[in-house]
């Protein structure tokens, strides 16, 4: 019953030589020949040093950016060949995000932020109830009507988790989800992330510096100078 959710073949990304800062007039290669397959319900971690291309790869996998070459399929669709709107439609209601800097909309309440993806995906019913349930699930039942810029970092990231999971997405992309949080808060957010992922059987692609976090995933890949290699997963208690 395993189904492939993400599949790449010889995926490449480079920045053309005309770039302002690229003085040696050669293309800057960021990702080379990435081959990756992610099955439904699987959790995958990608680690690497700063500048190794982690975020670029995540952006490509999620269809936020376009590759320079190779094949890329997301949820069964060849998104390398699609325009921005077509890629957005694939994401709508089926793909969730958690960002390092949360990227919640200031001046909206926690509840309003969580309602946003449901409102965008037309045909949703009981939007408010679903959003309230999602917030309750991340332990923010008491803070729903608070403006998000009044919440602590941990609380903001929990709102972001609620926003990501409220549409019950098939895939969740997480970019350093605990990067801006202290160790305790980070662990709490990570626990919730994995528990929601398990509960909803969501496919998770996680980019992180944090090897402890990476070790909690089913598969772990390391990205080094644009080259992706598989990492052996240590047993986690």
């Amino acid at each position: 019953m395993n189904k492939t959710v993400i599949e790449t073949r010889a995926l490449r990304k480079h920045i053309p030589a005309s770039g302002e800062k690229n003085t040696d007039r050669r293309d800057l290669l960021i990702l080379q020949d990435i081959n990756l397959t992610v099955q439904a319900g699987e959790s995958v971690a990608i680690t690497g040093t700063s500048g190794s291309g982690k975020s670029t790869l995540l952006g490509l996998l999620a269809g936020l950016d376009t590759p320079s070459g190779g094949e890329l399929r997301l949820l069964g669709r060849d998104i390398a060949q699609q325009d921005e709107d077509q890629r957005a439609e694939i994401r709508l209601g089926k793909v969730g995000f958690v960002f390092q800097s949360f990227h919640l909309l200031d001046n909206l309440t926690a509840l309003e932020n969580v309602m946003l993806p449901l409102e965008l995906a037309s045909g949703q019913r009981a939007i408010r109830t679903l959003a309230e349930a999602a917030l309750t699930q991340v332990g923010l039942a008491e803070r729903m009507q608070h403006l998000v810029n009044r919440l602590s970092g941990g609380e903001q990231q929990r709102v972001a988790l609620a926003r990501a999971f409220v549409t019950r997405p098939q895939v969740l992309f997480a970019d350093e989800p605990t990067g801006n949080l202290d160790k305790t808060t980070g662990k709490e957010v990570a626990d919730r992330l994995f528990s929601l992922q398990k509960e909803q059987a969501t496919t998770l692609v996680l980019v992180t510096h944090d090897e402890t976090l990476a070790a909690r995933c089913d598969n772990w890949y390391r990205l080094d100078a644009g080259v992706l290699t598989a990492e052996k997963i240590a047993e986690v208690a």
């Binding site: 921005e84 957005a88 439609e89 694939i90 709508l92 089926k94 995000f97 990227h103 965008l120 995906a121």
Partner: peptide
Amino acid sequence: LKSLGAVH
């Protein structure tokens, strides 16, 4: 909004 799937 775009990351959440909003089209042009």
